[in-house]
Lab assay of single mutants.
Amino acid sequence: MSRVPSPPPPAEMSSGPVAESWCYTQIKVVKFSYMWTINNFSFCREEMGEVIKSSTFSSGANDKLKWCLRVNPKGLDEESKDYLSLYLLLVSCPKSEVRAKFKFSILNAKGEETKAMESQRAYRFVQGKDWGFKKFIRRDFLLDEANGLLPDDKLTLFCEVSVVQDSVNISGQNTMNMVKVPECRLADELGGLWENSRFTDCCLCVAGQEFQAHKAILAARSPVFSAMFEHEMEESKKNRVEINDVEPEVFKEMMCFIYTGKAPNLDKMADDLLAAADKYALERLKVMCEDALCSNLSVENAAEILILADLHSADQLKTQAVDFINYHASDVLETSGWKSMVVSHPHLVAEAYRSLASAQCPFLGPPRKRLKQS
């Protein structure tokens, strides 16, 4: 649940008159999402009104509101027999009622949201009550392989729920002597030191190019640089560091992050930047690179990204790559990247197969709970 924001200063709310007192009302909304995959969808019983329910879910471990999704594969009634019906059901509720908006969509073979439908307002739910769409999607369109909505005969539904909580009022009075504290510009100011090479005390040599930097900042941000300058190493004695395995453009992006906490060109060089972040123990930059690479996972590059993640101990990226390969196994196994990995990294192939087997055979063990970014 997000923290209630402070109200904007009255002088910034309007260029008009300023009242002596004010009130700011925040209506709290808890948002969460749920993904439900139905394997072997074409084998569902086709009687009209037949119901399939998901397991229950909530916004978190401490949330007492429990929900589930309900599907009628062949419609709810005679009117909707040519459609799939989809509903959000409130299973248990400690209150007399709650209000919530919802959005349903289908994830296609690429994991993209399609055929989205959402409620136009927050509906009133009581325990045992459901709301949804009797005519969510035509069955003939859903079952047509050309539309790519049932890869490997799996129907994957994605649901986003927004639950309306209580409202909170914050009130106060205006004073004539309003003090406005300026925003912190530390990142910009440190970035200026790097860009202008002011007050530098060490030189970093990268592929024949020299960059002036500040030992204190490098040591504070990177345990690797800290070790170089702290001990009686040649880098500490000469205040000069030779860097041979990072390209200059990648190095500059890494230094921008060290000084400012930002990497504006990360998406263009996420793979190389991940390697640099791993070498210099820049954990936050490493996770930022993992996130960017996750966003660009595809059938063509899944094997290469899995190898990269394994090489640099990028655990979150590795998990996402394995899950992606499992979901698109029939396509990924035909790529040149996968065939190369079979020869060069057989242990990763074995890991992917083990994960695929456990996903398809849940009876082999208890269900695993899916539970950071600093």
Rank of each mutant, 00 (worst) to 15 (best):
E12R: 06
Y24R: 12
P346E: 11
F324C: 07
A216M: 08
M341E: 00
E145I: 09
E97H: 13
K64C: 13
P362G: 15
L84K: 12
L143R: 10
P8Q: 07
Q120H: 11
F158K: 07
L143K: 12
E290H: 05
A352S: 04
A292S: 03
V126M: 12
V181P: 06
A350Q: 09
Y259C: 06
V349Y: 12
F133C: 02
R354M: 08
Q316W: 09
F136G: 01
A216G: 01
H347D: 08
D63K: 08
A303T: 08
R45C: 03
Q373P: 08
N244D: 04
E195T: 07
P7H: 07
A329S: 08
W22H: 12
S336N: 13
C93I: 12
A146Q: 01
V29S: 10
G111S: 08
M269S: 03
C93L: 03
F43C: 04
L190K: 10
G148H: 04
S85C: 10
T335R: 09
M13Q: 02
L282H: 06
K129M: 11
P73F: 09
A314S: 04
F102A: 01
N39W: 09
C294A: 12
D77A: 05
G191M: 02
N196H: 02
D166T: 10
A187K: 11
A350G: 01
E189T: 03
Y87L: 09
L348H: 07
V4F: 02
E12M: 05
L69Y: 07
R3F: 12
E118C: 07
A219N: 15
V98G: 11
D63Y: 12
F125W: 02
M233V: 06
A146G: 04
E210D: 10
P73E: 13
M255W: 08
P7Y: 05
T200G: 14
S162W: 05
A109K: 13
N174L: 05
L149V: 02
P94E: 11
G172Q: 09
P9G: 04
S358F: 06
C184A: 03
V98Y: 12
Q360H: 09
V126Q: 14
F225L: 07
Y327Q: 06
V71F: 09
T319S: 09
K237P: 11
E235A: 08
C205G: 13
P264D: 02
H214I: 14
S374D: 15
G172N: 03
N62I: 13
S236N: 07
Q360I: 15
G191L: 09
G132Q: 00
L297Q: 03
N169A: 03
S105P: 01
R3E: 08
R370K: 15
L86A: 14
I106L: 08
V91K: 13
S15I: 07
R138W: 01
Y34A: 08
T114A: 12
P223G: 15
C202M: 13
L274C: 01
G16M: 02
L371M: 04
L84V: 06
L86W: 15
R3D: 02
N196K: 11
D272A: 01
N72R: 07
P367V: 14
S336Q: 02
S330A: 13
A61H: 05
K31D: 10
C205A: 15
A220S: 12
E334T: 01
A357S: 04
F158M: 10
S171A: 02
M228Q: 13
L69S: 05
Y280M: 10
G208R: 09
S80N: 04
H328N: 04
K180C: 04
I305M: 12
E79I: 06
A277E: 01
T175S: 01
A270P: 01
W22A: 05
N301F: 03
V246L: 03
L317T: 12
P362Q: 15
C256N: 01
E112D: 03
P362M: 08
E351R: 03
F102K: 00
V168S: 08
L273E: 00
S374K: 13
A146W: 14
T335A: 05
N147W: 12
S295I: 10
N72C: 10
M228D: 14
Q212E: 09
L317K: 00
V161F: 08
A61P: 13
L76H: 09
F102P: 00
N39R: 03
A270G: 10
V126A: 09
S358P: 04
S85N: 14
K28R: 13
R284H: 10
F57R: 00
K215R: 11
Y34W: 02
G148I: 08
G16N: 11
N169M: 04
L308Q: 07
A213Q: 15
L76K: 07
C205M: 13
K74P: 12
S336W: 12
E210F: 08
M176R: 04
W338D: 00
L218I: 06
I38T: 02
D278N: 06
F133K: 11
T319K: 10
W131Y: 00
K81H: 14
T25H: 05
C44F: 03
N40I: 05
Y34H: 02
G191W: 03
A11I: 11
L88T: 07
L107A: 14
L143T: 11
E235P: 02
P248T: 04
N108I: 01
L90H: 10
L274G: 00
Q209K: 12
S330N: 10
A292R: 12
L308A: 10
A219R: 09
N40W: 09
N40C: 11
K64H: 08
Y123A: 13
F363W: 14
T200P: 06
D245R: 12
R354T: 01
W67Y: 07
F158Y: 12
D63E: 13
L218S: 00
D315M: 14
L76Q: 11
V164T: 07
R185N: 04
F229M: 15
K134F: 00
A122W: 02
Q173M: 02
E145L: 08
M255V: 02
H312T: 03
D267C: 02
A213L: 14
D166H: 15
H347E: 11
Q373W: 15
S80L: 10
G132I: 00
C202H: 14
E334M: 05
K74N: 08
A216Q: 05
E97F: 11
E283K: 04
P367C: 15
S15P: 06
N296S: 04
G60H: 10
M228S: 15
S92W: 14
P151N: 02
A357E: 03
A227G: 14
A309H: 00
Q320C: 04
S197E: 15
H347M: 05
V163K: 14
A352I: 07
S313N: 05
F104M: 15
